[in-house]
Simulated scan of single mutants.
Amino acid sequence: MSAQAQSAKQKALEAKRLKFQQELKQLNSLLFSDKKKEKNVISLVEDLSYKVSVRRNLIKVTNDQANLLTREINANQNEISSLRDQLTILKKEYSEMVVKSYKSKSEQSRVMFLLSSDNFKQAYKRLQYIKQYTDYQKEQGDLIKAKTIKLQELNTDLLRQKKDKDQLVAENRIAKKELEKELKEQDKLMSSIRKSMSSYASKIKQKQQEIEAIDKEINRLIREAIAASNKKAGKSSSSKGFALTPEAKLIAKNFVSNKGQLPWPVEKGVVKVRYGKQRSPIDPTLTINSNGVRIATERSTRVRAVFNGEVLAVTGQKYSNPTVLIQHGNYITAYRNLSKVYVKKGDQISAKQEIGEVFTNNEGQTMLGFSIFKDSKPQNPASWIYKM
């Protein structure tokens, strides 16, 4: 059971390691491959900070794997030593038994052993003893064979484990060198930022204010839709939740049943900004409040709906790109920062249907803002989208 538990843990760690490796590949592809476009310092630091965090996660998971392998190697070595001791004892006992059997192997000796019985019951018992002794000999031979095979298997596992550990250690050594390079680059960028921190801080605040303005507009549209649904159903317009028809209730139920399994709103992407409050990588005194996630993706990437629903609104403010809101019962998904929109209010949408295209700025950044709301309350998209 202990071995099975360790094996399961090793598989889980390997899955995490591969995930972080894949994420680093995507980061390099999406954020660090376009050398023609010059990013501003804020974007560079944000991208590099995220890459450093992923690299650190990869190093930690690889370390955990190597440490677990070390424990497994030690356990295997102890078991191999124990099996060798058992085999030595078994072989000694077996050889003594074979010698003893050889000395009394003649059929005449067995017959005399039976005929010298005092009565039939004693003869029967002696016959049983002979059979049991023969069976025991066979069992001991089989046991030696089984333990020898197990010893060979453990030796093979041990060699594989040592090879795997050496590979992990070598990979981690390379990863640590890459991390050192990235940290030096990060320090260099931060040094240039510190000279005019107030200027950069004001830019971050301005960006946050623009995002909050979009959040406010989305919240207004959702509250208006909630009020309209309640008015239509003859309920109080002050209600904070949607008044749902039977069909809308079914859509909402199906949406909830797919929690954690919903497809990504883009085919390829990495989450650069996660849900909730977080410190700015530029100025730790500033807090970024995110009602959803921001996904870095490729230029000209098409956005797709994560579930069946109806387009609630298509909106865009003076200084922001269009946002599409799709209603799924009393759940809303929001897709921000689009350059093109393929749908309009009232359209019926199916899962994975293309609804627009992500905007790419002058620095070559293609970033989709994605949010999920239950009525007007924001949800963490990582809890809903598959492996986010």
Rank of each mutant, 00 (worst) to 15 (best):
I251L: 13
K121M: 13
T245W: 09
K259W: 06
S95W: 00
K103F: 08
N254V: 05
R279K: 15
Q132L: 14
S2I: 09
R194V: 04
A252W: 07
N155V: 08
T148K: 08
A351K: 14
Y275K: 11
E107C: 00
Y342Q: 05
F113H: 07
Y386Q: 14
S82Y: 09
N78Q: 11
L158H: 10
V341I: 08
T333W: 02
G292R: 02
E38H: 13
L69P: 03
K51E: 06
I355F: 03
A66C: 03
S95C: 01
K145S: 11
K253I: 07
N308D: 15
S53I: 02
E79T: 14
G309M: 06
I288M: 12
Q261D: 10
V293N: 01
L44P: 01
R299H: 07
I226H: 05
K268P: 00
Q208T: 13
E46S: 02
T297S: 09
S82A: 12
K91V: 00
K240E: 13
V270G: 00
Y124G: 05
S81I: 07
S53L: 09
R110M: 13
A225M: 03
V45S: 01
K39W: 02
P381F: 02
Q278E: 15
E180W: 08
K272D: 00
F20S: 03
V273I: 10
R71K: 09
K344C: 03
L262K: 07
Y335P: 04
L58D: 10
L68R: 09
V306W: 00
M97W: 10
V61T: 14
I174A: 14
S95R: 03
Y94H: 12
P284A: 12
N380W: 01
S106R: 05
N57C: 00
D347P: 04
S49F: 03
Y275F: 15
F32Q: 07
L312T: 05
P381V: 03
Q21L: 11
T245D: 10
I149S: 05
Q353C: 04
L115Q: 09
D118Y: 04
V343Q: 03
N63Q: 14
K100A: 08
L338D: 01
S198C: 05
N362F: 07
V266L: 06
Q317F: 07
A225T: 05
L286S: 12
K181Y: 06
E14P: 00
E310N: 04
L13S: 05
R274N: 14
V98D: 00
S280Q: 06
V54Y: 01
R71Q: 11
L24T: 02
V273R: 11
K92T: 10
G329S: 09
G329R: 03
V273H: 09
R173G: 08
K195Q: 13
G356K: 06
L158V: 08
E357I: 04
G269I: 01
K163S: 15
A170H: 08
I349G: 03
L154S: 10
A175Y: 03
N258Y: 10
K216M: 08
N289D: 15
N308P: 02
P378W: 04
L13E: 05
V324C: 01
S196M: 10
L18R: 12
L31N: 05
S290Q: 07
K318Y: 12
K272M: 02
I222A: 09
E139K: 08
D187P: 02
A305F: 04
F359K: 08
K51S: 13
E180D: 15
A228N: 15
S33Q: 05
K195P: 02
G364Y: 06
